[in-house]
Design a protein around this nucleic acid. Structure first.
Lengths: 203, 203
DNA sequence: ATTAAATTGACCAGGCTGGTCAGATAATTT
DNA sequence: AAATTATCTGACCAGCCTGGTCAATTTAAT
């Protein structure tokens, strides 16, 4: 059996992944403790090393897992025929939030990877596991003629993306602190911001 | 002598502060190593404990230092008579960038504090060391009649703040990775975004 | 009842911990 | 130049924690 993880009960698997992501997102690789990972995951030391063989392989697994997890969900769930960038961005924001709710330390873990790898290394990894992601996400089939005539598209695109990213980060913080966040409430707020941005930058 | 740090050569002091902030921003309090702090700061173990007595006191010092550092610079340098929110935000973005360039791990250290303290604790600390900061920064003497008539002010305010925060974070990342970032180039880009935002949301 | 698979946790050698303090070095005063 | 004071150093401490192993136990399948 190659992948000993896939045999596992999914609840248990998620618990291990979350515990490991938490530890690696809070401490540098060297200082991250496998003892604490197994403790918080509720499994024994032996099991962890049975599943992953070594700390390094566990880390590598998480790296690829986190990239795939997010990209696959986006790839599957987004309506790629939608030409309205704001609707596209809202869709992605909600998908991200869903994934981050399931794996609360994924974003923090991502930021670690980001901080430790050069831009080229990162792009190479993305290309390997989710080809063409960069050209696709915010561009595929988007109708750029919907922007106001005299507007600087590149800057507006960033403003849109950043706004929804910041909203997502804020929700994530609330979720992590234990608050029960209502999905409808979120969708409503996203819509409110969408409306404001539409009024400002679109025909 | 109460504050043994103020006697120090300022270059040395900054090196110690930066080294400690780096370690505390990369690792949780328990895992942060005083050995590595002195190593990167280029001082001896004995000196560190002579200046700060204990790891805990060092951490507390950094906490207060970082809050004061940023707030004082903003308090001093911002033109509080300026009623244009975009100019205010640009000013603050530049000040932040200046401070973060001097202390590259201050933002990361901040985020740690943020993650470990409740909203109430944080507000209490801010009120203690920089009273009224919340009401002041983005509101004092700002002319809210400059917004477009039919616009939702709260949402636009967040969009403005978030946009400039994200730009700042991106610059900081480039600075940390060793890139020499031109101040004029930054100011120009901030102006470009200001213009776009002005066209979208202001009269 | 037997076999096979999954899980446990005590155990290892050795690195790293926060903190101390006697002695070295540098700066100041006489 | 000598004496005094202030600053700085790094070897040293007891003991906790490290990643990883593996014989023994529990659970599941036959």
């Amino acid at each position: 059996m190659e992948d000993k993880l896939s045999n596992l009960d999914s609840e248990k698997r998620i618990k291990i992944i979350n515990s490991a992501m938490e530890e690696f997102s809070k401490n540098s690789y060297d200082k991250a403790s496998t003892n604490r990972i197994v403790e918080n995951a509720g499994i024994s030391k032996g099991s962890l090393f049975n599943y992953f063989q070594s700390k390094e392989k566990l880390y590598n697994y998480l790296e690829i897992f986190s990239i795939k997890q997010l990209a696959n969900e986006i790839g599957k769930k987004v309506n790629w025929e939608e030409p309205d960038i704001l609707k596209r961005i809202k869709e992605i924001a909600l998908i991200k939030l869903e994934v981050f709710s399931k794996y609360p330390y994924l974003l923090g873990f991502f930021k670690r990877i980001n901080a430790n790898k050069s831009m080229e290394e990162l792009k190479a990894i993305y290309e390997k596991y989710v080809p063409n992601i960069y050209e696709k996400v915010y561009y595929k089939n988007i109708d750029f003629s919907l922007f106001k005539e005299d507007i600087q598209v590149k800057e507006v695109m960033n403003i849109l993306i950043w706004t929804f990213e910041k909203m997502g980060e804020n929700y994530l913080k609330r979720i992590k602190s234990g608050e029960k966040v209502n999905t409808e409430e979120i969708s409503d707020e996203l819509d409110r911001y969408m409306e404001v941005l539409r009024k400002g930058f679109f025909k």
